[in-house]
């Protein structure tokens, strides 16, 4: 897992033309490819910005072996 940098994440969001429901999967793919994982911070942020719940995004991510998310317990 590479170090998560807020700035780098924000840049990624900008490059993806902002956050939208329609591009969420693509954006999270880029987060994974860039950081080697999807940090909870990102899930929380994207949930707040898309109206999706954290649980829904988390649950979805865990179904893909190429997304790396870690439960907190």
């Amino acid at each position: 897992m590479k170090e998560f940098k807020r700035q780098a994440y924000q840049k990624l969001v900008e490059q993806s033309g902002g956050v939208s429901v329609e591009s969420l999967f693509v954006l999270l793919g880029r987060v994974q490819d860039t950081f080697g994982c999807v940090p909870r911070e990102v899930v929380r942020d994207l949930a707040a910005r898309t109206g999706f719940s954290e649980a829904l995004i988390y649950g979805a991510l865990t179904c893909y072996k190429d997304f790396d998310v870690r439960p907190e317990r």
């Binding site: 179904c63 072996k65 997304f67």
Partner: peptide, 28 residues
């Protein structure tokens, strides 16, 4: 055109699983 990269599961190739995947849901 959004270029999306699959993230692993075989089942994402199934029509509805693929749709679910793009909705950021579990590929089911």
């Amino acid at each position: 055109l959004q270029v999306a990269r699959g993230k692993g599961p075989y089942i994402a190739g199934e029509e509805f699983a693929l749709i679910s995947s793009l909705e950021m849901r579990r590929a089911m």
